[in-house]
Design a protein around this nucleic acid. Structure first.
Ligand code: MG
Length: 389
DNA sequence: ACCACATGCAA
DNA sequence: TATTGCATGTGGT
């Protein structure tokens, strides 16, 4: 299945990317000049060392994480000087231009007119796929400027469409299944808004009283728990004091006591066996689980918590992929599976085949594995990936 | 040519 | 001091 995805490749609109490139180029040039002006020196803005000299030595801004100029540091320096904001804008546009807008057209194959990534099957520690040359699993979506790039991922034929289907909250559902936590399993079975339900319980209010900010908090906490985040990281993510983050996590574990139980029993299993496993039996060794080094031991714990969840999710979508592939062949359909992005599958399909494809994809994704919680799949279609997802 | 590191994109 | 990846650029060997 992966070979077929690689051979078929993705059509990418070169002209659209070229237009974006000159547009981005002008903005980057003007930002660069502005940064030179504001700093009083012409230097390489891409050099973190040179930028640190300007910000911390020349302008005397406070060092927050040693001499790091990373995004979260520049965000905190925003109010003190205009330069950090300009550098952030420069970095955003430069990243998109260099990594995607200018790089992708170079990779268009002369014979096929399409881009052929490699989907690595045996690379990751958890059983996920990875994608390289180019990486099709990190195409931008978070900012509007980046999201525009997805308009270039389109069908080459006006009579064909892009179809995308993605699992909804798949890792949380798998955590519910693996832990058998009663409240989490119940919530999913009732089909309620899981983040709002979490917020109601953690903040001890009724579901109608959940404010959007409470829901956002619950979403971040739900997410963080999948990775074993502690109070420090949670406080950073939420922008609250560490003490508040700590009591938030405690309230969470009180709501979902089965999750705490799952984490503990996963630890015991890992210590006993020095590996952890997915639902279907993939093993990951975790030698550092009893390391004498505290940092190594804690890191191993987080990997042991996350691997069964991330790995089981990977198994589910891989089963769906082989099943969908076989159906498409059996029904002599023309649609092609093109991309896999961990919980999402992207296809191209003749317009008159779309409804049939959608029925197959949703059925196979939803029923790939049988868990104690329902599986939900969202989908969409359009001229490009931008509209489809 | 190769490497470590910083940075930042995705799920 | 939250998991899994890959690409780019700098600064160095
Ligand atoms: Mg999703």
């Amino acid at each position: 299945v992966l070979l077929e995805m690689e051979f078929k490749g993705m059509y990418v609109d070169e002209q659209l990317l070229n237009e974006m490139s000159s547009d981005f180029g002008k903005k980057i040039d003007s930002l660069t000049k502005g940064i030179y002006n504001e700093s009083g020196f012409e230097f390489n803005v891409n050099s973190t060392q040179q930028l640190a000299k300007i910000l911390f030595d020349v302008k005397g801004l406070p060092e927050i994480k040693k001499r790091s100029t990373a995004e979260d540091v520049l965000e905190q320096l925003k109010g003190k000087h205009i330069l950090p904001e300009m550098v952030l804008e420069f970095r955003k546009l430069n990243k998109l231009k260099n990594t995607y807008i200018d790089a992708l057209p170079e990779l268009i194959n002369q014979s096929s007119g399409r881009i052929h990534s490699t989907f690595n099957q045996a690379m990751t520690a958890t059983g996920r796929l990875s994608s390289s040359n180019p990486n099709f699993q990190n195409i931008p979506i978070k900012t509007q400027e980046g999201r525009e790039i997805r308009k270039a991922f389109r069908s080459s034929d006006p009579n064909w469409l892009i179809f995308s289907a993605d699992y909804s909250q798949i890792e949380l559902r798998i955590m519910a299944h693996l832990s058998q936590d009663e409240a989490l399993v119940d919530a999913f079975n009732k089909g309620v808004d899981i983040h709002a339900t979490t917020a109601a319980s953690v903040f001890n209010v009724s579901i109608d009283e959940v404010e959007p900010s409470m829901r956002r908090t619950a979403k971040i906490v739900n997410f963080g728990l999948l990775y074993g985040a502690g109070p420090f990281r949670m406080s950073q993510e939420l922008g609250i004091p560490q003490k508040e983050a700590k009591s938030l996590i405690e309230a969470y574990f009180a709501t979902y006591a089965g999750i705490k139980n799952y984490v503990d029993s996963m630890m015991d299993f890992a210590k006993e066996n020095r590996f952890v496993t997915t639902l279907l039996g993939r093993k990951r060794p975790v030698w550092d689980i009893d390391s004498s080094n505290h940092l190594h031991r804690e890191a191993a714990k987080r990997m042991a918590i996350n691997m069964p969840i991330q790995g089981t999710s990977a198994e589910m979508i891989k089963l769906a992929m082989t099943s969908i592939y076989e159906s498409i062949i059996e029904k002599k359909m023309e649609s092609n599976m093109l991309l896999q992005i961990h919980d999402e599958l992207v296809f191209e399909s003749p317009k008159d085949e779309l409804n049939e494809l959608k029925d197959i994809v949703l059925d196979k994704m939803i029923n790939a594995m049988s868990l104690s919680v329902p599986i939900e799949v969202d989908s969409g279609h359009g001229q490009s990936w931008y509209e489809a997802h």
